[in-house]
Design a protein around this nucleic acid. Sequence first.
DNA 1: AGGAGGGCCGACGACATTTG
DNA 2: CAAATGTCGTCGGCCCTCCT
Length: 598
Amino acid sequence: MANNREDLEHKDDVEYLEDDNDEEYLDDPDNKDFLDNNANARGDNETTTLADITRALHADPIAGTVLRARISHTLRERGNKKARTKWRHALRHPLTLEYRKKLEAMLPGSREYKVANKRIQEIDRINVMGTEAEKKKFLTNTLKFILPRFYSSQCKTGKRYPGDGGPDPQVETDHESDKEWEDLQLQQQDGNGARHKRTNLSTKTKNISARKRFAKMENEQRQKFLAKKLDQHHHRKANTNPRPSTEEEKRLAKLKTRSFRERQSKRMANLSEEQQTAFKARKSEQRSASEKLKALRKSRAFDLPSQHQRAALGRQWRTNPEFEQFKAQFAQDESSILILDVEFSRVLRKVFEVALGRLKSGKVLVDNRIRHDCTDTELLNLPNGQAMGFMTRSILLGTLKNVYGSSDRRKCSGLRTPAEIAKMIIEAGVTPTSIIVVWHQSTMDLDLLRELIESTGYYNVLPPKVNCIPMIPQFRENLPRKFTAKLDILFPLLFAGHHLVGTNHRAGPDIQMLRLMTLLLIQLQKPPAERDLSDFPGTTQEDIMQAQVPRTELQKWPGIGFTLAPTLLREAIQVASWPLVKDGGDKDESEELIKDSE
DNA sequence: AGGAGGGCCGACGACATTTG
DNA sequence: CAAATGTCGTCGGCCCTCCT
């Protein structure tokens, strides 16, 4: 192991610099050689321990440096955490409280009072705005301590704080744990068993017990600590782009965004019609490419559940009381459960398309676009009369185009007025006791549909909010941490090759996907052996049957252990061969696009 | 036996992200 | 954009371990 004191001293630089490299490095499938080689050399039968992985990681020139930097960072954090806890405990210590009481009882003019008061004020200052270093210093440095010296052996016969003549302090407590832990680390890394020799008997005994303690720590905490590190390694994506932290940074970020948008609007205005179309087409192409790539990267995490490290599809999915109730009603009265998807704009509070069907049979009750007898400009008027931003407008126009098609939307087929929709819903037998399932985080779909229907004078047609079951939370509960719950990514993963793949954001296909996802969820919540997958496509059945628990730590680490469906694999190869868009926020991406289009 | 250190956990709140 | 959810750090309370 190449770790040494210098590494620890320069950890800040190392860590910061290596952070991004590491991300790219591990994301690139070609660079995982060191792990694969390691796996081959050991053979499949041999159990791979966490220690083996750690060794492999440490041996790698890049990943090793990163890992060591991380470990030293965590050690430092541990130290800070200890200081914080110690400080917190010291402040709530009865003697500290006593000390404050004594101060109140003192004569304000006396020298004792002045000294004690100064100390208390300093304690409060450090407590509120002091740095961790200050806290550490005052907790450990016997010469510059600020809290009462509860633990000093020198105080055994003396006073512990001004005005105190009370009992002796109990023990001389070991304050060197931090140092010893670091010593132990260094000693292990050097592979050198020699310890610093201490002449003092009491410290020697202390060392033996400390060594015992740390031997135990090594077995339990070290394993835990490393496992946590490895886990974090996968889930660290969010931290790569530093967020603006200070007010000033936030202000600057906002200004930057605004000026970018202004520039973009200007440039767009100067472009000819053709150029604009070309730009938009190019942008949407690039965006979908980068979205696909993102989805693919995320999909690698699908077999890496955060805590219990088991393949998501291979285990029984969790459920909750509300969903149990829903399932009970579904078993009792299938026809009362409906699936709903509404294409709408939250800003305008307008509905563009409604699809309603039965969950069990998939029978479609309503699948119509809403007739709006007005021009696009009128349709896009904000309710409060404010002007709409460039981006908002572009997004809305995109939605409209997606729903109504590119030609005149008043010539679309299947247009219905809100009143006609209301009638259809009533005729289909929807009652206020029906249960409505939506693919959403909230009940917004149902709310807007209700608004639409009530605007035509039909009341008490739709069930109340409580009868609406948003499916996203149900799925999210069972997906690995940070795994997307977007239907357009989740559905292709679970139903690879299904004809509905790629037909998102139209109400009709959306409810069909919602139906399949809901029925699948019900099956996934059963123990694997009791599942009835006969209603689902062959590929889905295979995926679920084949999802296996990763056998070794090594499999878990690079994300092996879950077979990607063949179609998705093909797409993966295709996507991987595209030129890589440099990773960054959407803004950067658009910036590049603008430059490209010139 | 009882006090001190210190870890763990849930509650909480500020802030970020993810959806449509 | 708005709502829901996720993340992260802090705090108080509780409990375990160690020490004399």
